[in-house]
């Protein structure tokens, strides 16, 4: 198993390198560069040829005229920078955000924390609803409750998340006034301690989490339901019943773990979907998260910031897929690798 994980980690490194190079090349197509961004404030006071000269000089200083591969390696921290040091991603420097005029790492910290927090919350919430719900529906297939759930999940599945967000905002914030409509903390509030701050934050992110959870309910419930129905129709379930086991034991001891197998594989795609979906959610609710930052970065052509966020998403998916494979091995003895 250890060797297998090592091998997989090796793959991850290779895939990450390829992916980061592709991303770097792609974002280089943005019709601006750090030199131009740097000169932008002085531009009005300069003549055209002066500007051009300064611009060329700056480009040379910043090493922007070097070939793409060199620039990429420099960014990764595998090539000497213009000042002769190694200073790149591998050294923990993701570059400089022109928009915020700070290092990307500093810019990204708070939003990343928020995003991970919100997403983990909504993942746990929706898994703890969808799995029991899916199992219940599978066991009571065709009954009234199952049919009703099918209709509701179909709705959740087919309505886009931003519509759900608006409807929920209208119901919870406008009609009932239970939750704040946007932001992450009450404006102008002074906190006595960090616990109070935490509670206030929970209060603010409650609605976004509810919306995200609701939006992901449909697909997952249907998936759990169908894989549970498959598991229940297996021959070994018949064997278990023939043993004289109670139906409850049959379902929870024999069928459920088998039903989990296909679910595990789908969780990855779905998990990433939640991360992606948070771009919309964060914008709708004005939360300070990665999604919103990404969107702002793109709008302002903040090349290195956007690239860093993109790398974050790639790492989440690469590590996620490794975790899925490992957990698959834990659940299913047939794919356990012993060598």
């Amino acid at each position: 198993m250890g060797k297998y994980i090592l091998k997989r980690c090796g793959y991850i490194v290779v895939v990450f390198l390829i992916l980061s190079f592709l991303m770097y090349s792609l974002y280089n197509l943005i019709p601006t560069d750090p030199a131009r961004q740097e000169l932008e404030p002085q531009r009005k006071g300069l003549k055209a040829d002066e500007y051009q000269m300064l611009y060329q000089q700056l480009r040379k200083e910043m090493g922007l005229d070097d070939p793409l591969v060199v620039r990429y390696l420099r960014w990764m921290g595998l090539w000497q920078d213009t000042d002769g040091t190694f200073n790149g991603v591998l050294e923990g420097n993701f570059g400089y955000s022109n928009l915020y005029k700070r290092n990307v790492v500093e810019v990204i910290q708070a939003p990343m924390g928020n995003t991970i927090f919100i997403n983990i919350f909504s993942t746990i919430a929706s898994l703890s609803i969808t799995i029991p719900l899916g199992i219940y529906c599978a066991v009571h297939k065709g009954k009234r409750f199952d049919s009703a759930t099918q209709v509701v999940t179909m709705l959740g599945y087919s309505i886009p998340v931003y519509i759900i967000a608006l409807i929920f905002m209208y119901i919870f914030c406008v009609l009932w006034r239970v939750f704040p409509i946007m932001g992450q903390k009450t404006a102008g509030m002074e906190y006595a301690n960090s616990w109070e701050e935490f509670v206030d934050m929970l209060y603010h992110i409650a609605l976004p989490v509810i919306v995200m959870t609701f939006g992901s309910l449909g697909g997952m419930t249907r998936y759990v339901r169908s894989s549970m129905i498959d598991a229940l129709s297996m021959d070994y379930i018949r064997t278990a019943r023939a043993k004289g086991l109670k139906e409850k034991v049959v379902i929870y001891s024999h069928a459920w773990r088998n039903a989990l197998l296909p679910v595990i594989t789908s969780i990855l795609g779905w998990f990433l979907g939640i991360f992606g979906g948070s771009v919309i959610i964060e914008n709708t609710f004005s939360l300070n998260g990665m999604g919103k930052l990404y969107w702002q970065g793109l709008n302002n052509m903040d090349f290195e910031l956007v690239l860093a966020i993109q790398m974050f998403y790639s790492i989440v998916s690469l590590v996620g897929s490794l975790l899925i494979d490992i957990s698959y091995g834990l659940v299913d003895p047939r794919v356990r690798v012993d060598k």
């Binding site: 297996m234 021959d235 070994y236 018949r238 064997t239 278990a240 023939a242 043993k243 004289g244 024999h254 773990r257 088998n258 659940v331 299913d332 003895p333 047939r334």
Partner: peptide
């Protein structure tokens, strides 16, 4: 008690 047909599928693989 009952013995079922296909031994390849009648035992829980997990």
């Amino acid at each position: 008690a009952m013995v079922t047909q296909d031994p390849m599928t009648s035992l829980n693989p997990l």
